[in-house]
């Protein structure tokens, strides 16, 4: 479970198939595949014929979710090797998307954030996007000093992968950036940063 009570963090309320949607676009990462598989178990297979699934296996590749997702026989199943081609494909999908398309995202928080960023860019109201957190609790963090973003942060503090400052991960999230805020932890007395502690396994 993610830490609760962070006011600026989106609530990931879970995938919830909208029976009235004309088309479903599922953008899934790693363990996020299981979120859709669970929905099929609960709601039946009817929506799959009007569904497009974009999948990035990432760390969950050994679990071969791609085989399971493909076996669901959606209208389109497409698998990306890395995030960059996935975002490229997503843009193409949104470019052509019609009224009545429902976007659903499942995976780690950093993944959800980056997909939502693209969706918001295309004018989708973020309230209308169904999201479900699955997999690691690692955070995507922006350094407030150099503005560089570090993915998959599991400890606090952690060294900024761009400027090297040791950063405290604040419980403050920007939807626009799809990232938490990282602030230099030993700014007052450089060199006194505590040891990194595993906070987001």
């Amino acid at each position: 479970m993610l830490v609760q009570g962070i006011k600026s963090r989106p609530e990931y309320k879970g995938l919830d198939i909208d029976p009235h949607a004309k088309r479903h676009l599922f953008v899934l990462e790693g363990e996020g595949a299981q979120a859709l598989i669970d929905e099929v178990g609960a709601k039946g297979r009817d929506f799959l014929a009007k569904s497009e699934i974009l999948y990035l296996a990432a760390g969950a590749a050994p679990k071969a979710y791609d085989v399971t997702l493909s076996a669901l026989s959606p209208d389109v199943f497409w698998q990306a090797s890395t995030l960059q081609p996935l975002l490229f494909r997503l843009r193409a999908c949104l470019e052509q998307a019609r009224m009545g398309t429902r976007l659903s995202i499942a995976g780690t928080e950093g993944f959800i954030g980056q997909i939502m960023q693209v969706a918001i860019e295309y004018g989708i109201d973020y309230h209308s996007i169904h999201t479900e957190h699955r997999g690691s609790m690692a955070r995507r963090v922006q350094c407030v000093h150099c503005k560089g973003i570090t993915d998959n942060v599991t400890t606090s503090p952690f060294p900024c992968s761009h400027c090297g400052l040791p950063l405290l991960v604040r419980d403050h999230y920007s939807r626009r950036l799809g990232a938490f805020q990282g602030v230099n932890i030993d700014a007052e007395e450089p060199g006194t940063a505590p040891e990194p502690e595993e906070m987001f396994p």
Binding site: I6, K7, S8, Q142, V144, D171, H172, R175, R176, Q181
Partner: peptide
């Protein structure tokens, strides 16, 4: 507080911390 980080947030969000 950072405008660059908070821009686009609603009232409860930007007062989060």
């Amino acid at each position: 507080w950072s405008l660059d980080f908070d821009i686009g947030m609603n009232f409860m969000e930007w007062h989060g911390p």
